[in-house]
Computed example of a mutant assay.
Amino acid sequence: MKEQQKSKGISSAVIAAVSAAVVTVGGGVAWLTSNTNPTPEPPGREQLKNQKVSVYWLENAGTNLKLESQPIQVKSDGEPNKVLQTAFKQLLAGPTEGTGSTTIPQGTQLLGIKVESDAVRINLSEEFTSGGGSTSMTGRLGQVIYTATSLNSKAKVYIEVNGKPLEVLGGEGLVLNQPLTRESFNQNFEL
């Protein structure tokens, strides 16, 4: 009888010791895991994240046009120049889905874009100024201003063509007092 009790006592002691060891090792692993820094990215590899930006198309609103946004996700390292550059490349390529349209002439190229704290400077190719009447000119101007300000709706927009400030747009002679904003566009131009 004593031997049975003795063997039960040893078994309980062994079980208790093993349990204590498991708890101790588990706690140590948890502590190490929570206090270890993640492996840093190798130099030269930027961590990319999705950033939302909008491209603006023209929609038929019966007797006039209206600007409609198309949100797009851009993989970015957080650099606003790259985000807006991607948005403008899509804008200048034209709509690929939905009912939106554009009055930006085919072949217009983005020659440069620079995002500052409260301004966006856009340099477009000469094609931007060609063709179309006043509605077409107003529509393309709205598309550029609204797309340029999709990261900061209060930003001022400066438009250049081939590196020179755009003062008059097209044969219809839309006079542009730069900088342009969403507010100044809505006050001075009608779609």
Rank of each mutant, 00 (worst) to 15 (best):
K6N: 14
G26A: 12
L58S: 01
V53A: 06
I10F: 09
E59I: 04
E41R: 14
L48R: 04
Q5V: 12
E3Y: 12
A30M: 06
G28P: 07
S54K: 10
T39Q: 10
G44W: 07
Q5E: 15
W31P: 07
K52H: 01
L58C: 00
E3W: 10
G28H: 07
Q5P: 11
T63R: 00
K49M: 00
W31D: 12
A20D: 07
S11A: 13
S12T: 13
N37D: 15
S7C: 13
N64H: 03
V29R: 06
A13Y: 06
K2C: 12
P71I: 05
K6Q: 12
V29P: 00
E41G: 05
N64C: 01
Q70S: 02
A16H: 03
S19Q: 03
Q4I: 07
T39N: 14
T33G: 01
L67N: 01
E46M: 11
S19V: 02
V53K: 02
Q4L: 15
A20N: 04
W57D: 01
Q4W: 09
K2G: 15
A17Y: 09
T36M: 11
I15P: 06
A30S: 05
Q51G: 01
P42N: 12
V25C: 00
L48Y: 05
Q4P: 07
G44V: 11
L48T: 01
Q51L: 08
E3A: 12
E41V: 07
G26W: 02
A17T: 11
A16C: 08
P40L: 08
S19W: 04
Q51T: 08
G9Y: 10
T36E: 09
V29D: 00
P40T: 09
K6G: 08
W31T: 08
G62W: 05
Q70W: 00
P71A: 02
G28E: 10
K6H: 14
L65R: 01
L48E: 07
V14M: 06
T39C: 13
S54C: 04
G9S: 15
T24I: 10
Q4A: 14
M1G: 15
W57R: 08
A20L: 11
N37P: 10
E68G: 06
